[in-house]
Every structure is written in structure tokens, then in C-alpha cells.
């Protein structure tokens, strides 16, 4: 068995094996322009409907399925988006998903990310009324 200089087996060293979420954020508009993502952020980080979510997952291998779900203030699922990614035998430094979400009234929501039936990330966020933002 290969060991390091201080008697620790190489196989025992900490190695990242699981994909992880690099970013889950919300934008006013997202657009794929010839492979470049053009991001239009919300002013003062206040989110209002409609909006786009952007999900970045790092250290991904092979293929699989990612689900993005949004739960309303009463804990009921109101949005679900399904994505497929990758090819068998390939490694991806990161993969990016984004989509538009419409029709959610103001309130406190929770977003949950499933990757191959396991939760890998979740976040709480607040949707504000656009009218209240525009008022002086």
C-alpha cells in the first residue's frame, strides 16, 4: 500500500468525491449568448417575479438528473424543474442550469436541489412585490 512520508496511507487522504453546489442565485434576466451567460441582477438584491434561477454544480462525473424545487410559505411545492446532464465516463469541472420562474406571489420561499434523488443544497429566499420596490 502506498504511503505518504508521515506514514499515512495515500488511500486514506481526504479526497472530494461528491459533487457540490458552487452557486444558487436569482437574477432578473439570464441569457445564453453564444456560450456566454449574460446576467442581469436585481437591484438591491430584492427578488421579484418573474425571475431566473442559476444553479452551478461542481466536480460532476458521468450523467444523471438534477431537480430544482421551490416550496411556498405554506411549505407546499409550487415549482419543479427537471434537468438531465452529462455522459457516462466524462468528468465536468462544473455544470450550470438556469430557467425562468413566473407567477409566484410575494412571500418567503425555499428552494431545494436534488441530484440523483439526494438533496445537495437548499436555500430560503424572499420574493418582493415589484410595486413596493418602485414606490419612492
Amino acid at each position: 500500500m502506498e504511503t505518504t512520508g508521515c506514514g499515512i496511507k495515500t488511500a486514506d487522504l481526504p479526497i472530494i468525491t461528491k459533487p457540490y453546489t458552487g452557486e444558487l442565485s436569482f437574477y432578473r434576466h439570464l441569457e445564453n449568448r453564444s456560450g456566454q451567460l449574460k446576467k442581469t441582477p436585481f437591484e438591491n438584491n430584492k427578488i421579484f417575479s418573474p425571475f431566473y434561477f442559476l444553479l452551478e454544480i461542481k466536480e460532476v462525473e458521468n450523467n444523471g438528473r438534477v431537480q430544482m424545487m421551490i416550496y411556498d410559505p405554506d411549505n407546499y411545492k409550487v415549482i419543479q424543474r427537471d434537468f438531465s446532464y452529462g455522459e457516462t465516463g466524462l468528468y465536468y469541472e462544473y455544470i450550470i442550469f438556469f430557467d425562468k420562474v413566473e407567477g409566484l406571489p410575494p412571500g418567503k420561499y425555499r428552494a431545494v436541489v436534488f441530484m440523483d434523488r439526494e438533496v445537495i443544497h437548499e436555500a430560503a429566499f424572499i420574493i418582493t412585490s415589484e410595486k413596493s420596490i418602485k414606490k419612492p
Partner: peptide, 21 residues
């Protein structure tokens, strides 16, 4: 997380945490 979020345990725990990648 199913059709509804089902919770069990101490619901006073804070659910908003910073999560640096």
C-alpha cells in the same frame, strides 16, 4: 421534501445558514 415539506423535531432551530462552497 415531497408535495409538502414535512417537519419533525425542534422547529425553533434556525433554517437560514450561510453555506460557503
Amino acid at each position: 421534501f415531497k408535495g409538502k415539506i414535512l417537519q419533525a423535531g425542534d422547529d425553533t432551530l434556525p433554517k437560514i445558514l450561510k453555506k460557503p462552497a
